[in-house]
Write a protein that binds this DNA or RNA. Structure first.
Lengths: 256, 256
DNA sequence: CTGCACCCTGACGCCGCGTGAGGGTCAACC
DNA sequence: GGTTGACCCTCACGCGGCGTCAGGGTGCAG
């Protein structure tokens, strides 16, 4: 059976010797056995485990957590691998999103057009964490939610600059109308009767490029609980995020 | 003119207040002005700078370096933005590469096929850093080298599992033949006459899916200087990397 | 004038290693 | 058997990029 010394394994895996020492220290990756000279010797098993570790590390998962995952009883190599595969794919898309963001920024800089920071935000922050939302969405709602989001993103991606701008302006108007009610102290439940909430749902439908049923709308409300979405709405007006999701749910309840 | 307090800017940008404090401390992002209450106030200018910072940070560039880049005299926003755009695109591809790697690993695990760690390596390490090589290649040799590599990768990508395996096995045989000479203490220059080096060049040509001229072969030798390639060859036999590139260059010199 | 939400400035801590220092070990060649 | 040089080991300190209290000021609303 083949064995590897620290340096050989390190070279194979593209990490430093120190890293292997560290992983040994914290119990993340222990040698197959140790010589009486205290040398570390690794085998095939460890090679594989290291691969897993590196894959997880690439996703910025803390080492402690990686250990927990790999050591979980009933840990299924294939399942985890497949999961990470999908995460990595999202990561890839996240970067692709940032590229598009920069492209838009470039266009704007070249055109000397003043920036709408709401749009800048939408470009910068949202796509930056889009993958994160999406895996989160999938965890909570399963695949069909994901499909919807992906389709939505694609629809947005196909738009021209002008169309996108118009889209965003429209969203701002809709949100402003809702915020108005919020500022006037309207209880969120009352907003279920406000045409503004209806307008919001319609905007969502057009962004998704497909109907937004009350069920889907409730799903979206859940999504809005996510910290990064909250930030978006809290920025408009502190407390607005809470208000909005409550209003959305209230509206949906009335429809069912 | 619009101003933002720490929290508002933080929310907009999706970072923590502490982060903004930190950036102020180290002089990376200072407020537009400070109230006499010592409050930090940011303006549009800072919003943009923060965007730049975040883009660079996403590429794991140390903050000090980011500061240096952004503060460089004659710093061209558009140029830097375009550059980062390309880097991000590479990143996206790097992740895509990892996805393919995992796919192959999955296939192998499902098939219960024993792993050849050389192949595992080729799967794991190389693609993991492929984008890195490529940007490095482009820096050193300009676009046509890149085109070649990309085409090569595509050729490999189009192969079936069996074909790829055969390809890798062939490479191993060729390398083994070269390593033989190395172990026997053959001086690398003498290897220019060894048919093994010719076989290596032919393998490269078939991997690239196109001729490998002596000039290209020299270029490849340069590429092999890259740490991660070195690792691959140092793992076969310590000192082999040096030997190989010298041999490659010697061979090419004889052809010209 | 009392809350409450926001702002400030230290200062310490954590993670994932890099980077020595100081010292054994192994294989090869004299 | 001794020397050389490349490997291996164990401490132990440090650093970057913040998170996270602690302790205290500010500003506006009711």
């Amino acid at each position: 059976m083949k064995t590897y010394t620290v340096q050989r394994l390190a070279a194979l895996a593209g990490v430093s010797v120190r890293t292997l020492h560290h992983y040994d220290e914290i119990g993340l990756l222990k040698p197959a056995f140790t010589g009486e000279n205290r040398y570390r010797y690794y085998g095939e098993e460890e090679l594989l485990r290291l691969q897993q570790i590196l894959i997880h590390r690439a996703l910025d998962i803390p080492l402690a957590e990686i250990a927990a995952i790999l050591d979980a009883p009933g840990f299924d190599r294939l399942a985890v691998l497949r999961e990470q595969r999908d995460r990595l794919e999202s990561e890839a898309q996240r970067f692709a999103g940032m590229v598009r963001t920069i492209d838009r920024t470039i266009v704007r800089l070249e055109g000397e057009t003043a920036m709408q920071d709401n749009e800048l935000y939408f470009g910068l922050i949202a796509p930056e964490r889009q993958a994160e939302y999406e895996t989160w969405l999938v965890e909570r709602f399963g695949g069909d939610m994901e499909a919807r989001i992906v389709r939505g993103r694609k629809a947005m991606g196909d738009m021209s600059e002008a169309e996108r701008a118009e889209m965003m302006a429209e969203l701002q108007r809709v949100e402003e109308a809702l915020a108005e009610g919020f500022r006037r102290g309207l209880p969120p439940q009352a907003t279920a009767l406000d045409p503004a909430i209806e307008a919001h749902r319609e905007w969502v439908a057009s962004a998704w490029g497909r109907e937004c049923t009350p069920e889907a709308y409730v799903g979206l409300a859940d999504v809005y609980e996510h910290p990064d979405f909250r930030k978006r709405y809290e920025t408009i007006e502190p407390g607005f995020a809470e208000f909005l999701v409550t209003a959305m749910r209230a509206w949906a309840r009335r429809q069912l």
